[in-house]
Computed example of a mutant assay.
Amino acid sequence: MDFSSSPVRFLKKKEPIYQISTLQSLVMGNYYGGVSVEQLLAHGDTGLGMFAAADGELILLRHQCYRILGDGSAVLAAPSERVTFASVSFLEEGEHIGFGHVGSLDELRAALDERVEILGPNNLYVLQIDGEFRRVAARTELKQEPPFEKFADVLARDERRFVFENLSGSLVCFYFPAYLEGVNTGGWHFHFLDDARTCGGHVFDMEMVKGRALLNKTDRFIMDLPHNPEFQEAALENASKEEIKGIEQGGE
């Protein structure tokens, strides 16, 4: 793999990562919707998440918000649509990274972990990779009706998977340090959208021919908690770490 980077040029004033809800809450089945797309866009131009009622994966790219439907297609989300979980930030000038061939998501994750170790593993990072992809394995999920089940049960029944081949597009990637595990996924979380804005999803594997990335490091984090009764009554400490790992990595 060809992995090269330019000198670090982070701005002194770092944009925060803004998050709606917690991953524990999502895992336990709280899909009631916290903010509108319009409100989310006030906090970032790059991001990922999920829509209310678990109605599809969300990807925010270049200040446009897309929903991934059950057939893997991407549609522009209306400003009034509700979001149940998301992490967003304003992507600004940071570190540029060049990639050659990357054979898998694990290989990409290992390369990015190397950079994080150098730059500081206890900070947060947002990354956009624009590239050519031989393969992207992704998923979304179908809309649920209340009372909502745990997310692992939703995925067991209503997850939809796809493999996209030979296309150009962008990976939106967020890194949370291990001490925030449960608030979000510890490590990297990846979503994909193709250049034509026709397909995408939550990524659990990929093969990249080449790519160019912009990496931002931040030491600022803002989180808005849900206000619904289900959140107040939830035993979030019971959210299974094994389920969180399986949800993020795609399971078998």
Rank of each mutant, 00 (worst) to 15 (best):
residue 8 V to L: 13
residue 14 K to P: 06
residue 18 Y to P: 00
residue 18 Y to Q: 04
residue 18 Y to V: 09
residue 18 Y to N: 02
residue 19 Q to P: 06
residue 20 I to C: 11
residue 21 S to P: 03
residue 22 T to V: 13
residue 29 G to A: 00
residue 36 S to P: 04
residue 38 E to K: 10
residue 42 A to Y: 10
residue 49 G to S: 01
residue 51 F to V: 00
residue 54 A to C: 06
residue 55 D to S: 09
residue 57 E to N: 09
residue 59 I to M: 07
residue 59 I to C: 09
residue 60 L to Q: 12
residue 60 L to I: 15
residue 69 L to F: 00
residue 69 L to T: 05
residue 69 L to P: 00
residue 73 S to L: 03
residue 76 L to R: 10
residue 77 A to K: 00
residue 78 A to W: 04
residue 87 S to H: 04
residue 87 S to T: 06
residue 88 V to K: 00
residue 93 E to T: 14
residue 94 G to H: 07
residue 94 G to E: 10
residue 94 G to N: 10
residue 95 E to H: 12
residue 96 H to I: 15
residue 100 G to Y: 04
residue 100 G to S: 12
residue 106 D to L: 12
residue 109 R to N: 13
residue 110 A to T: 11
residue 112 L to M: 14
residue 114 E to K: 11
residue 116 V to Q: 05
residue 118 I to R: 14
residue 120 G to Y: 01
residue 121 P to Y: 01
residue 121 P to S: 03
residue 122 N to P: 08
residue 122 N to M: 14
residue 123 N to D: 15
residue 126 V to M: 11
residue 126 V to W: 08
residue 128 Q to F: 06
residue 130 D to Q: 14
residue 132 E to G: 11
residue 136 V to R: 05
residue 137 A to F: 03
residue 139 R to D: 07
residue 144 Q to I: 00
residue 145 E to M: 10
residue 146 P to C: 02
residue 149 E to T: 10
residue 151 F to V: 05
residue 153 D to T: 08
residue 159 E to S: 12
residue 159 E to V: 08
residue 162 F to V: 01
residue 168 S to T: 14
residue 169 G to Y: 03
residue 170 S to W: 06
residue 177 P to G: 13
residue 182 G to R: 02
residue 189 H to C: 09
residue 197 R to Q: 14
residue 198 T to M: 11
residue 198 T to W: 05
residue 202 H to N: 07
residue 204 F to R: 03
residue 209 V to E: 14
residue 219 D to A: 14
residue 219 D to I: 12
residue 222 I to N: 11
residue 223 M to K: 11
residue 223 M to W: 06
residue 227 H to E: 13
residue 227 H to T: 12
residue 229 P to G: 05
residue 231 F to V: 01
residue 234 A to V: 07
residue 238 N to G: 08
residue 240 S to F: 06
residue 242 E to S: 15
residue 246 G to S: 15
residue 246 G to P: 04
residue 248 E to W: 11
residue 249 Q to A: 12
residue 249 Q to N: 14
residue 249 Q to T: 15
residue 250 G to D: 02
residue 252 E to T: 10
